[in-house]
Amino acid sequence: MSLEIPAGEILSLVGPSGCGKTTLLRVLADLHKPTTGSVIVNPAIRGDLGQIAFVFQQPTLLPWRTALQNVVLPLELLRHSRSLNESPQINAKTRRQCEEIAVEMMCQVGLGDALRLYPRQLSGGMKMRVSIARALVTQPKVLLLDEPFAALDEILRNQLGELLLERWEQQRFTAVMVTHNISESVLLSHRIASIQNGKIKELIDNRLPWPRLENVRGTPEFGDLYRRVSLSLHDAPKEG
């Protein structure tokens, strides 16, 4: 597999279960060593701290921390560690600075009122917002998302998709997103890679105009693209 992802692009990975999407994502996050081959990331990013963030399928919030404390966590973990990055997010020195940055991020994802709530007091959608805020709080250059909205209902999924685009407009990170949802991949990304048996079967350019608003959904272009991705997945060999 060979794949080049330009900076600032949102790339969706679609494909049948077990085709290697998540593995690819984990390799990119350096959570998994590739058996062969290599990943070349802009050297300013690779190996530096807080430049890559990961959003898991489950919100993965620590239950003993409040929503705010969960968002502070990455900053806390990065404190006192050496980083090439000069951004205030990564070099926050005091607990107070970290908290201020986290509060700002919480407000940007629409959770300004839920700072002191514990995860068990939050709804599914709010938990996912906290999870996204936690990933973005370090102002990462690369955001990796592993089926982030798969466990949510469609209304929430659309809302969170919008939130993601909104944050992308502001922060211009590079994003790689694994998804099972075709319309999600069409709405949210610049390119869509359909993956089969660990290989890229097709790389589809998505030329829908930006900014992508919800009304893009009804357009014929959207429908065409949806069909193309759907077809690309359709010839996938049946499992078993």
Binding site: R26, A29, L31, L49, G50, I52, A53, F54, F56, Q57, Q58, T60, L62, P74, L77, L78, S81
Partner: peptide, 14 residues
């Protein structure tokens, strides 16, 4: 420990 929670900490090189 939950696998994802552990991965979260690994992403930030804790």
């Amino acid at each position: 420990i939950d696998k994802d929670e552990l991965d979260l900490f690994r992403v930030y090189r804790a």
